[in-house]
């Protein structure tokens, strides 16, 4: 009986331990480091998204803080955490990162420039149209790409830059992250 209890306890302990590791994705080493950076960005986004969405009062100071966090882990701070072939260890990264390294680098650099500009534009608001104004005839409804931004970043509103930051997260996740759940 005692033996059985001990066994059960051991198994329960092992399960608890392994689920604890799993909760952190089981990541180790440099994979863990870059995942932690991603989590920092996630929290930074979570703090400001409701403001741009109009769910929380706008706080320019928080926008600067969040933008600074993203800027600090974007660009080479991000790409340096992806030495060639650093797979396994609980990573969600896809191997094509290294096959399309230039693309990965340019997306990471975009993120750095956009988040920097977002911090600088924190006081500049703009009501962004919820949907594209026109549907057809040279417009974007039937067409492919979004209109390219022809203004310098320093003239764009925080709202527009926040969308550009989001879109570069999305472009990168679309190509280089494998969704497992």
């Amino acid at each position: 009986m005692k033996m059985l209890l001990l066994k059960s306890a051991l198994i329960a302990g092992a399960v608890a331990l392994s689920s604890n590791v799993l909760a952190h994705g089981g990541a180790t080493g440099i994979v863990k480091e870059r995942m932690d950076q991603m989590v920092d960005m996630k929290h930074a986004m979570k703090a400001v998204a409701p403001m741009f969405r109009g769910k929380l009062p706008y706080d320019a100071e928080q926008v600067r803080k969040s933008a600074a966090i993203i800027e600090s882990v974007a660009g080479s701070a991000m790409t340096d955490k992806f030495p060639e072939g650093s797979m396994g260890h609980g990573t969600d990264a896809k191997v094509n990162i290294w096959q399309e390294w230039d693309k990965f680098q340019s997306l990471s650099d975009d993120l750095k420039r956009y988040s920097k500009a977002l911090g600088e534009a924190s006081e500049r608001r703009e009501k962004v149209a919820a949907k594209p104004a026109s549907m057809m005839g040279g417009s974007s409804m039937m067409g492919a790409a979004k209109p390219a931004v022809d203004q310098p970043l320093s003239e764009l509103s925080a709202d527009r830059l926040f969308k550009m930051v989001t879109d570069s997260c999305s472009s990168c996740h679309r190509r280089f992250r494998e969704d497992k759940k």
Binding site: M41, M45, K46, A47, S170, S171, C172, R174, D179
Partner: peptide, 18 residues
């Protein structure tokens, strides 16, 4: 569905991003 941003602050990837 408008922005890609989840309540947790993650930005959706994979084919959903498209």
């Amino acid at each position: 569905l408008r922005s890609g941003i989840t309540p947790e602050g993650d930005v959706l990837g994979g084919s959903m991003a498209e």
